[in-house]
Design a protein around this nucleic acid. Structure first.
Lengths: 214, 214
DNA sequence: TTCAGAACGGAATGCTTCGTTCCGTTTGAC
DNA sequence: GTCAAACGGAACGAAGCATTCCGTTCTGAA
C-alpha cells in the first residue's frame, strides 16, 4: 500500500502499476462515497482502468471495501492528532470536527460498515480514534467552553448528522456541512439549557460494526 | 385512502379488506423507513398478508412508494399546522421540529425521493409545506429568539441531520434525535457568532426530486 | 342452501444487476 | 528476441426482485 504522495518519476509498466494503486483507491473512495452500493465496475471505470486491474490488487469487493475503510480510519486518526496539536482547547475541538467533516471521512466509514468483516488492526485503530476524540472532548470541557453535559459520543451523532447533508456539487456540500457544523458548535458551547434524555453511551453507536448482515 | 383512525366494528371479508388498507400502508412505512430499497415482499410479510393483497391495491412498487410519500408529506403539513397553533413563536418553531423528528416523516420523504415520479398534487403539498415552514421561521426570527442569519432552508439541513441518526432500537433512536435536536436548537438561538458560507438557497435541497435516475 | 366472485396466499416466471473468472493482447525488462 | 507482469473487457453464473398466475377460501346475496 504505497504512500499516495509518492511521485515516482519512473516510466514504464512498473511505475504505471504503482501509480494505479493510488488511482484505484482514490476512485473507489469517490465512487463509494457517492453510492455505498455501487458496483465494482463503476470503480474501474472511474479509475480509467479495466476490471482485472482491480482484481489483481484486491481479492474481491469485500477486500477493497475493507482497505478503503481502514484507510478512512487512519485519516480520521490523523485528523484527530493534527487537531490535538492546537494549543487552544476549543480550537482543537472545533478544528478536529472541521477536518473530519471536510475530508468526508465519517460518511465513508459509516456507510461501509457491515459490508465486510473488520480486521483486528482496524479494531485497534478504532480504539485509538476513540481515545483521541475523548481527549479532545475532555480538553474542551475542562476549558469551560464546551457545555458540561456533552459527552464524547455526542461527537458521533454530530458527525453522522453532518455527513447526511449532501447536494450534487461536492464543494457546495462542504459549505453546507460547514454551516450546519457552525450551528452545532454554537449549540455545544457552554451556557445552553440541559440536554434531554440519557446521553449516548459508549458503544451505542457502534452497532453497524457488529454484524455483517445487511 | 381510508382514514387510519377508522375503526369499523364490521366483521367479514369486506371489513378485513378495509383494515388491510391501513395495515399495509403502515407496514410499508415501517419497512421502507428501515430500508428504502427493501423488496415489496418484505412489506407483505410485515403486514402479514400475501403479495397479491398488495398488488390488488397498488399498480406496482412505484405506486406504493408514491402513495407512501404523499402520505408523509401530508403528515408533515399537519405537523406544521398543529405547531403553528402554538401562541409562543419560539415554542411553535421548536415544537414543529420535535413533531417532525419524532414522527420520522422527513427521512421517509427524503430517502424515497427519486424512486417515483411525483404527482402534481404532491407538488402543491410540497409548496404548502414550504410556506408553513417559512411562516414558522419568520415568526421565530421576528420574536428575536431565532438567530437572524438562519434561513428557512436551514431547517432542511437540520431535519436531514436528525434523520441520519439511527440505532437499532426505534425508541432510543427517537431519544438520541431529540438530544441532537436540542443541541441544534441551542445553536439556532440568537446570540451566537455568524454562520459561515452563503446560506442554503430555496430549491437547493430539492435536487432529489428533480430526476428519477439514481 | 347455493353460488358468483371478491380477496387472498404464495409459487412460478422472467428480467436485471453484479461479482468473479477467463482469455487474448500489450509492453517493459533482461 | 523472449518472457511474463499488467491489462482490457467479454462471458459466465448466481442472486435478488418486481410482477404475474392460479388454485383456494369465504362473504353476501339470491
Amino acid at each position: 500500500m504505497p504512500n499516495p504522495t509518492d511521485n515516482p518519476p519512473l516510466a514504464g509498466r512498473r511505475a504505471q502499476a504503482a501509480r494505479n494503486d493510488a488511482t484505484i483507491l482514490a476512485a473507489a473512495r469517490a465512487v463509494f462515497l457517492d453510492d455505498p452500493k455501487a458496483p465494482i465496475a463503476a470503480v474501474a471505470e472511474r479509475a480509467g482502468v479495466g476490471i482485472s486491474a482491480l482484481y489483481r490488487r484486491y481479492a474481491g469487493k469485500e477486500d477493497l471495501l475493507r482497505t478503503l475503510c481502514h484507510d478512512g480510519l487512519l485519516r480520521f486518526v490523523a485528523a484527530a492528532e493534527e487537531a490535538a496539536a492546537e494549543p487552544d482547547d476549543w480550537a482543537a475541538f472545533a478544528g478536529f470536527l472541521e477536518r473530519v467533516v471536510d475530508a468526508d471521512v465519517h460518511s465513508l466509514t459509516v456507510h461501509l460498515a457491515g459490508t465486510f468483516t473488520p480486521t483486528e488492526e482496524m479494531g485497534r485503530a478504532a480504539v485509538r480514534a476513540n481515545e483521541l476524540v475523548d481527549g479532545l472532548v475532555g480538553r474542551a470541557r475542562r476549558s469551560g467552553r464546551l457545555r458540561p453535559d456533552a459527552v464524547t459520543q455526542d461527537v458521533g451523532l454530530l458527525l453522522e448528522g453532518c455527513a447526511a447533508i449532501r447536494v450534487p456539487d461536492p464543494d457546495r456540500t462542504r459549505e453546507l456541512r460547514r454551516r450546519h457544523l457552525a450551528v452545532l458548535l454554537a449549540g455545544l458551547a457552554a451556557g445552553g439549557p440541559a440536554l434531554p434524555g440519557p446521553p449516548p453511551a459508549a458503544g451505542e453507536l457502534d452497532w453497524r460494526w457488529r454484524a455483517t448482515g445487511k
